[in-house]
Design a protein around this nucleic acid. Sequence first.
DNA 1: TTACTTGCAAAAACTTTGCAGGCGC
DNA 2: GCGCCTGCAAAGTTTTTGCAAGTAA
Lengths: 136, 136
Amino acid sequence: MLATLAEAGFSDTRARRAVVDALCEADSGASPADLLARGRSRHSRLGQVTVYRTLGILERLGLARKLHQEDGCSLYAASTRGHGHHVICRTCRRVAEFEGCSIEKVLSSVTARTGYTVEGHWLELVGLCPACRGKR
Amino acid sequence: MLATLAEAGFSDTRARRAVVDALCEADSGASPADLLARGRSRHSRLGQVTVYRTLGILERLGLARKLHQEDGCSLYAASTRGHGHHVICRTCRRVAEFEGCSIEKVLSSVTARTGYTVEGHWLELVGLCPACRGKR
DNA sequence: TTACTTGCAAAAACTTTGCAGGCGC
DNA sequence: GCGCCTGCAAAGTTTTTGCAAGTAA
């Protein structure tokens, strides 16, 4: 992830590393505030603004993805570069990434029914992770 | 839509009607601010707060759906009650609703690969509507 | 009448911007 | 050393809350 940042021409700074590490260590969706808190354990002078700015960069590079949810959409999760989707646990917010969403069939039927040319899609699953399912 | 509100125990007020009508007449995603503006042409004393409150009710009843987008997620669209998804035009924001997203196969493969129990999903398509495609 | 609604004003929450100083390269 | 980065403070936005007055039933 840091390597990709470097390739893209961004310098390797302490603040960015703190944000990136905080995001990667989290196996659940993290809000900018969460990331600030976690990042500060690595770099105490880290500011919220830098978290936002770094997230912006990561998002543009496809390294982080914003998770959208019923009750707001300001959680972020690390993401393998490129296309992919996330499943998020409705209880603990832990996320898992997956690829291959065979929705080609849906696309053609939507095109036929609505006349739209579909260029992109956003898919997100919600459920219970193995750990939370066990707890019940 | 108003009938459904009544059945759910909400009274039929001028303000709510203004918001509902504004949302229904819009064939594109509308922000709370858009709805306030449009709603005021019907009920000039309408306040922004009521727009938010009404949208909250409609959302809970499944009559309105929040559209999530790259650059923020505060657009709403009227929605047929129950399960469904939207395609939104990336140019004019016009939306169309569709049902039948055959993602059952995806679900089982995700369950197998991640161990999550998937309970719900959220899918949104982006593209060009017939009108915007023609304009180019 | 009685409880539900509304809208104003204010507060709160969340993001972005301006800018002087700091740090990576 | 030069130019990209950072963080503080402040400004902007968006959404929520408190409350007295208004309205549906």
